[in-house]
Design a protein around this nucleic acid. Sequence first.
RNA 1: GGCCCCGUGGCGGAAUUGGUAGACGCACCGGACUUAAAAUCCGUUGUUCCGCAAGGGACGUGACCGUUCGAGUCGGUCCGGGGCCACCA
Length: 847
Amino acid sequence: MARYNAKESEKHWQAEWETRALFATPGHSDKPKCYVLEMFPYPSGRIHMGHVRNYTMGDVIARFRRAQGFNVLHPMGWDAFGLPAENAARDKGVSPRDWTYENIAAMREQLKMMGLSLDWSREFATCDVEYYHQQQKLFLDFYKAGFVYRSEADVNWDPVDMTVLANEQVIDGRGWRSGAVVERRKLSQWFFKITAFADELLAALDTLERWPEKVRLMQKNWIGKSEGLRFQFSLSNGEKLDVFTTRPDTLFGASFVALSPDHPLTQELAKKDAKLEAFIAECRKTGTAEAEIEKAEKLGYDTGLTAAHPFDPDWQLKVMVANFVLMGYGTGAIFGCPAHDQRDLDFARKYKLSVTPVVVPSDADPKTFDVGKEAYTGPGKLANSRFLDGMTVEQAKAEVAARLEKAGIGERTVNYRLRDWLVSRQRPWGCPIPMIHCEKCGVVPVPKDQLPVKLPEVINFNVKGNPLDADTAWKTATCPACKGHAVRDTDTLDTFADSSWYFTRFTAPDFDEPVNKAAADYWLPVDQYIGGIEHAILHLLYARYFTRGTAKLGMVKVSEPFAGLFTQGMVCHETYKDDAGNWVSPEEIEKRDGKAFLRDTGQEVTIGASEKMSKSKKNTIAPETIIAEYGADTIRWFMLSDTPPERDIEWTDAGAEGCWRFVQRVWRLCTEAAGLAAPGTPVSADDDVSKALRQATHKAIAAVTEHLEHLRFNSAVAQLYTLSNTIGASDKANPAARREALEALVLLSAPMMPHLAESCWQALGHDRLAAETPWPKFDPALTASDSVTIAIQVNGKRRGEITMAKNADNKDVEAAALADEGVKRALDGKPPKKVIVVPNRIVNIVV
RNA sequence: GGCCCCGUGGCGGAAUUGGUAGACGCACCGGACUUAAAAUCCGUUGUUCCGCAAGGGACGUGACCGUUCGAGUCGGUCCGGGGCCACCA
């Protein structure tokens, strides 16, 4: 029999599946539903190994569930708005639309070569007019419901490109494209009021049982709930000042009050105080980069004002402006308690402010306790605190809160680190925000019957700033309210908005409203979502928020979009560098004896660490090259083998060859097996070889099923290797047992190597496709053997083993154990003190 | 600085949840087939010691300590690697 021809076979079966529309999901079905989704790709133009890994895993689950009898939804689409298209447009003079759709066409072909069981009839791109049309409706619904608001905010402004930049696009304080120093600028921007859902989003994390603990924790930290007290100081100029603290118990340790440089009061004072204005400017120079903050010195400026201690009007605290107080958290003002906060301590030492410990550890003497250079943040008893003395931290917190609440100048509050989501982008390749600005009427939503607000056919990039803003014809609009002259909002929505509801849209992609409730309620939540850990916070949090928003509006039933989440690891490869220190790609090298040499010159190159595949390190492997060489099944099998799916996997040529060998091996087993029983022949096993083979078969079915249920692809793969080894060694088994084993091998590997499975299934004489064949069932009676091997330990060390009938009497087991030669030798005639028998497992003899 | 995760052969990694550590794959080595190679098949492979051999002993899951008849698994301390957040009051 000829070798397996992956190239021909794969093309053939892909066409066959398509002709039969096997993976188009019916709207209604009596079967239980299962929605399997992988994070949709950005259409960069070609798929990379990360996509291959991601979509292979999703496909295995989809095919596995389908075989198990689920009604499976497994769609694919394109996260198609965003900067790369604009950059390509600028650099190559093409339209971002053409560039994007050409990329989509190219990537669609590549994905199809992988043999994924996708329902392509539901495909859409977020840059499709129809998609962003629906998204604009959704935006207006959110606006109407009060989920969207417009506000002035500090943003990263690139003065050369004349645009706002995302935080990630600011590198060392400079715009990543222009290299210009980024300014902070106050601009009117649109926000989604995600903070209104902060508590829900936090609380519901506990219900997401099939999410990685790590992701839930990251979201929890990001939301950053802290409970504390907000209270008022009366200032010497007669004004009131709100501060937030999580440590009201340390109020008698206060030695100053500090304002953020951006605090309204600071701004007001600066108008009459040039030195303060200069100080504020100085503070702004410090970037937000981690390294800078690390080194940044605490800076302060004495405003000359004082604040009265809330429990003692005669106790006046200096009001300082301090660079370490952030306007974006709490109230932008704090009281400083140096003894119990490191930042306050650094500040107090520098400006010679008092340091009074008020919480003293239980093993220290309150009279002599000194914090030195490190603030004490641990537990203890209150001291130097008048009526709080002797209390625990918790008691004191409650007491202070109660007293200030009673006095009407304080209130227990909850503060979140989470900020509202700024969604305005001064970018032309995005979903236009459907709003109109009228001089008379202010901000007016575009009426729904005037939607969509379409992007212009031609976007001119030869302008400074946002091309939409420069496009007068596009920008000009009629005010829907007064019919007067008005202009459109020229900002587009953050592309994270596009990806925040696409999974809902997949449930009814052609519906003429954003959401078809019946379809959404049937399919949602997504049963298994798969993607990279890099989306642990942003995308997954936004999607959760959007779903809650749509649920509040009655558009969907569920409030959590993803019941199961899996975050897969990255794909890595060795790195190579030549003598000059330049990265060298794997294609340029040749390996001999564990060393690497340039293919052209024979010069040796240094082998570096295995790192995430990236263009910059030149350590990428193109999936299409591998598919062309070995076929899709081999690359799929590799992605699932050996390494657990959540960990980083290293691509190696040797590993790929190993996978290719296995493909051939399975093919050979199926095609070279002479004298198999006819399909459907009842299986019986009288001889030992056949019995053992049947047992191996049914054990494999049970194990592979179990492993796939839990996404342990690597363990499922190992089981299939074991089964194929057993089959290879069982040619003396009877024809029906061998058929049973081979059919199990084929069907169990079908989700992972679907094309090979079809070819083998056909070779085994079946007319129906493997993809249409139900998942094999195992007979529990056959997975168990009637005898067990029991290890014998003496004092915890293994000294022998015995084979016993299953569930043999403990006394018999003990007797057999004591009779074992190795055990006798180890006992050396000494009588056992105690014998522990764990049925069917182990015996431990203690002497 | 805070929070979290992970350390098992030459490598990727298994190990019913406290019960035979190293399944399975890669690599290596030996053998078969072949004129030869490729392909394929069979076998060996944690370290170390004793033995001509059959076989047997000791050590072994980052380190140390503890709990237990029994620890890769549970607890403590430390070492090493990684992640997320971070002047968040």
